[in-house]
Computed example of a mutant assay.
Amino acid sequence: MEDLRQDEYVIFKNIQANWLRKFEGVGGKLYLTNQRLIFVPHGLNIQTDWVQMELWGMAKIEKHQTLGIIPNGIKITMESGEVVKFIVWNRSKIIREIIYAKRTDDIILK
């Protein structure tokens, strides 16, 4: 993971996840800081791009069902309209942590 910014700290790290990028599930790990959510892919993937989302730019964070039936997804809609989906274990806890971090970030920014 890249260096942390000034006043940034890690809330959780190394959460196994798959980023649903079009038709491919890119395996990697999620990191949540007090400022952003970062996905770092494993080196064995064809697509090796990192994804980082600023907490302040998230408009909606919700549960998502993979293939319409498997309850293991997180769907994040950004203020820009971009939608990012991840497959994770224990999604309710992860969603709670993201929402809590986002609220804390929003309070600090105001």
Rank of each mutant, 00 (worst) to 15 (best):
L37M: 13
L32H: 04
T104S: 15
W50R: 14
V26G: 01
V40L: 06
H42K: 12
F12L: 12
R5A: 11
G28S: 09
K85H: 09
N72Y: 10
F12R: 01
D7V: 00
G81N: 00
A59S: 15
Q35S: 05
I107V: 15
R103K: 14
I107D: 12
T77H: 06
Y100Q: 14
K60D: 15
E62W: 08
V51H: 04
K63Q: 15
K29G: 08
G57W: 08
R91I: 04
V84L: 13
I70V: 15
R96L: 08
F86V: 14
L30K: 07
H64A: 13
D49R: 15
I74S: 07
Y100P: 00
I69E: 11
R96W: 04
P41F: 06
V40M: 07
D105C: 02
A17P: 05
D105S: 01
D3M: 07
R21E: 05
G81V: 03
N72D: 15
Q6Y: 03
N34V: 03
L37I: 13
M58R: 00
R103W: 09
V83M: 12
V83G: 08
Q65H: 12
R103T: 04
N72K: 10
F39Q: 08
I46H: 06
K110H: 13
W89D: 11
E8P: 02
N90A: 06
L67G: 02
I38D: 05
M58P: 01
K22D: 13
T66V: 05
K63W: 04
Q16Y: 07
I99R: 11
N72V: 13
I70E: 08
D7P: 00
I46Q: 10
I94M: 04
K29I: 04
I70D: 06
I99T: 10
E8T: 03
I46D: 08
E79S: 15
K110P: 03
R103Q: 12
I11K: 02
Q47L: 07
K22T: 08
T33C: 09
I11D: 00
A101F: 01
V10S: 06
D49H: 09
G57H: 13
M1D: 10
R103D: 10
N72I: 13
L20W: 05
E8A: 02
W19Q: 06
D3H: 07
V83L: 11
N34I: 02
E24F: 01
G68W: 05
G68E: 09
Q16S: 08
K110V: 14
D106Q: 13
R103N: 12
L44R: 04
G27A: 14
T77D: 03
L44S: 04
L30M: 12
F39R: 11
F12E: 00
